[in-house]
């Protein structure tokens, strides 16, 4: 057996990849909403958290794992849609701090309500796959059944979103509504519905992400389960470019890997410090993101 496969570097690389795809998913869900409605959704972690409680809470009513996941995703779609219709619709075209403040308020309310209803005590979600690392030649290899599931799910979600946007009529309308809403309406595109759909998709992607994060044995599901992940996801989206889905995913994975090495070789406190440093430096060097082509400011 090649000793490199079980080396510290390889383990960190694979562990970082597993975290990174999660950051990439969060960044992707932020980009979906940012591109279509120009709003950075600070409740992007909290809305899926509620959907996850609603769906996975059915576990205690003896529903099995996969139906609960399906319910959670449906709840995610619904919460995203209702939020856009009720809370966000009046904020388009307002000064940029208005949506920021409202979504921060929504984040606080959702976390507080979730804590009031379900308490702050972590709930373990039974993972359908073993989280114990594989063994190669008696040594642990940096992947487990669960982390492979995590990576494949993330790739699957990204592929579905990419295919939807690139190859379907619906995707064409979603993209057109984001780029040129008025022209799209003149061509008969129901732009209002597209914006709602953007929020629904984004919250559903977030729900899948939350289930992956909360299925981790060490975290479990808590009202604040997505706070830290949201911060890393935002950093990934800002570094990759809030306009660029591909950039945000690449940045998410890269940040995940870098931070894994930092956590292993330095210490765990340096993880978020490094992330902050990456954000500061990348905004200095490429203010519009590493993957955004145009740097023109929209007036």
């Amino acid at each position: 057996m090649d000793p490199f496969l079980t080396s510290r570097i390889m383990t960190d690389l694979l562990g970082g990849l597993t975290n990174g795809v999660v950051y990439g998913l969060v960044a992707l869900s932020l980009v979906l909403v940012w591109r279509s409605t120009g709003i950075l959704n600070f409740a992007q972690g909290a809305m899926p958290m509620v959907a996850t409680y609603l769906g996975m809470g059915l576990l205690s009513y003896n529903l099995s794992y996969w139906p609960c996941v399906a319910v959670a995703i449906v709840a995610g779609f619904t919460i995203g849609g209702i939020t856009e219709r009720v809370l966000v619709r009046g904020l388009y075209g307002k000064p940029e701090i208005n949506p920021i403040v409202v979504m921060v308020g929504f984040l606080i309310v959702l976390e507080a309500v979730a804590a009031a209803v379900w308490s702050t005590k972590p709930r373990g979600l039974p993972s359908p796959f073993s989280a114990i690392d594989w063994q190669i030649g008696g040594k642990p290899f940096g992947l487990s059944d669960f982390s492979v599931f995590e990576i494949l799910t993330a790739i699957g979600v990204m592929a579905v979103i990419a295919a939807l946007f690139r190859f379907t009529k619906l995707g064409l309308q979603l993209r057109a509504s984001a780029i040129a809403p008025e022209v799209s309406r003149l061509l008969g595109v129901r732009v209002g519905r597209m914006l709602t759909l953007g929020w629904m998709l984004s919250t559903a992607v977030g729900t899948i992400t939350t289930i992956l994060v909360a299925s981790n044995y060490f975290t479990g599901l808590t009202p604040q389960v997505m706070d830290g992940v949201f911060a890393f996801g935002f950093i990934a989206a800002a570094v990759g470019g809030l306009d660029s889905p591909v950039g945000s995913i690449v940045a998410g994975v890269s940040i995940g890997i870098i931070l894994q090495f930092v956590g292993d070789y330095l210490n765990s406190n340096d993880i978020i410090l490094t992330a902050l440093l990456i954000l500061v430096v990348s905004l200095m060097v490429r203010p519009n993101g590493l993957f955004t082509r145009s740097s023109a400011r929209r007036v």
């Binding site: 600070f42 940029e96 920021i100 830290g228 800002a238 406190n269 992330a275 954000l279 905004l283 200095m284």
Partner: peptide, 29 residues
Amino acid sequence: GLPATRLRGPYLAGMTLAFAVAFAAILSS
């Protein structure tokens, strides 16, 4: 503020959020 305030949009808000979340770790280091 130097990098984030150069940009329009939610960058300053996001950056300061990251700082607020990171502050406990910074104190601890």
